[in-house]
Design a protein around this nucleic acid. Structure first.
Length: 433
RNA sequence: GCCAGCGUAGCUCAGUUGGUUGAGCACCCGGCUGUUAACCGGGCGGUCAUCGGUUCGAAUCCGAUCGCUGGCGCCA
């Protein structure tokens, strides 16, 4: 018996009259009196199958007449060229078989955002979601390729974490047996990364992060995925090179490996192709001047919210770095030795209005100064007992960053809302299906 | 958390001044040998989100509650 064939292989190397055998799902089906058009969909593409009443057993034709969209089927037949068929070729069916009949499929041509989210378990099979998830798969794979190529080690940090870091109000607390200590889902691997770094020096991880922020925006999820990196001996400037290298690698890889998906998603690739190294670098102070020149009235210390980010990036066609933020940004950032108002850190903003996708910087590596910084933030050094130990036993300068993978996928595929680039999005009000 | 919007058939939406809720799609039946999210004819399908109030009478007016969506704020 003929092997099952991939639809894209059939269509990219067609030959008239060739015997083909395909399995997949009914994407569309149209029935006329004595013939049936069925578009078959599977992972590899779509192809039209045409069933002539006289070309296959009567019971199989009658079965096809009653088969609904999304039924899983096997079709066998001969390939025929026909300009009326999408793709230019169609299968003249000689054998039709239903593997799993579908009930009336709830998702039809009229769809609302809410309905698709309620039926996410079914919407995932759509061509749109499939295209996005293929790009997402490439991105996960290429993050690994990039770091492995630079001799970084992949490590894993715990999802259950004890003790609040900063911003404790956005942690998800979980019941943990009868522990009297608070246990939370991870927000970042930061503290653990610095511990693992001392043995491996160059490490990265890909993992979920959880934030109980009551955000209702197109760029926030309560559960999202981050790629994080930490390296001994490196400073902020070197870490920025590692960041722009990764982002450029991801964009080029997706353009090369997912051209069909980008085309289906109607992504304007010309913009992505313009991305070049190095990315422009601006200090926070320069950014304030740029925004104030556009009519804002921002003073030193002002947060760059989404409005400001969008103003900066919507006209851009390449990502930009913002560095040297005010020292209030985070206690573990190293204060700039040349200007103690700022810290050695960087954010990377994606162009076309997408905004921040990377946050990183150089860490304060000296015990006494780190403890002063912790007190500067009105926190107690005792809370960070084992973390401070890392500064007691051969501390070294080090840097790292975290890449928001979902935001990166959204930007590269040109999807406006982050929830549409993850299979099962979790937001403040949605945790099912 | 704040602001706004929405909730009527499985889906997308109409519903006039308060007077028996309609259409398209989906599905079922019939017709059609080239459909392109086909077309033609017929049919099935309703706790008008929930609770309460006003009224002779409420999908419609009022109040509360619930749910969802968007924006803002928040956001290593």
């Amino acid at each position: 018996m003929t092997e099952f064939q991939a639809i894209n292989n059939i269509l990219s190397n067609p030959s008239e009259g060739k015997k083909v055998r395909v399995r997949g799902w009914i994407h569309r089906i149209r029935k006329t009196g004595k013939l049936i058009f069925a578009v078959i969909r599977n992972e590899s593409g779509i192809i039209q199958a045409i069933l002539f009443r006289d070309n296959l057993p009567t019971e199989e034709f009658e079965l096809a007449k009653s088969t609904l969209i999304e039924s899983s089927v096997v079709v066998e037949g001969r390939l025929a060229k026909d300009e009326r068929a999408p793709g230019g070729y169609e299968i003249r069916v000689e054998h039709f078989e239903v593997v799993g009949a579908a009930e009336k499929f709830p998702i039809t041509k009229d769809q609302s955002d809410e309905f698709l989210l309620d039926n996410r378990h079914l919407w995932l099979r759509s061509r749109r979601m499939s295209a996005i998830l293929k790009v997402r798969s490439t991105i996960f794979n290429e993050i690994r390729n990039y770091f492995q190529g630079l001799n970084y080690y992949e490590v894993q940090s715990p999802v259950f974490q004890s003790g609040a870091c900063e911003g404790g109000s956005t942690l998800f607390e979980v019941p943990y047996f009868d522990s009297r200590d608070k246990v939370y889902l991870t927000q970042s691997w930061q503290l653990y990364a610095e511990a693992m770094m001392f043995g491996l020096e160059r490490i990265y991880t890909i993992g979920p992060a959880f934030r109980a922020e009551k955000s209702r925006t197109r760029r926030h999820l309560t559960e999202f995925w981050m790629a994080e990196v930490e390296a001994a001996w490196l400073g902020n400037a070197e870490m920025m090179e590692l960041a722009e290298g990764l982002v450029t690698h991801l964009v080029k890889s997706v353009i090369e490996k997912n051209p069909q998906e980008l085309e289906f998603l109607e992504r304007d690739i010309s913009i992505l192709k313009e991305i070049e190294l190095p990315f422009p670098r601006y200090k926070y102070a320069e950014i304030l001047d740029m925004l104030n020149a556009k009519g804002l009235e921002l003073e030193w210390g002002a947060d760059l919210g989404y409005t400001e980010e969008k103003m900066l990036t919507q006209e851009l066609r390449t990502p930009i770095f913002i560095t040297h933020f005010p020292r209030a940004k985070g206690f573990y950032h190293r204060v700039d030795p040349e200007d103690d108002k700022v810290v050695l850190c960087h954010d990377l903003l994606a162009p076309e209005g997408y905004g921040e996708i990377i946050g990183g910087g150089e860490r304060e590596w000296r015990l006494e100064i780190l403890m002063k910084r912790i007190r500067e933030f009105d926190m107690e050094p005792e809370q960070y007992d084992w973390y401070l130990d890392l500064r007691r036993y051969g501390s070294v300068p080090h840097s790292g960053y975290g890449l928001g993978i979902d935001r990166t996928v959204a930007w590269i595929v040109g999807e406006e809302h982050i929830k549409n680039v993850i299979p099962f999005p979790r937001t403040m009000r949605r945790y099912t299906p």
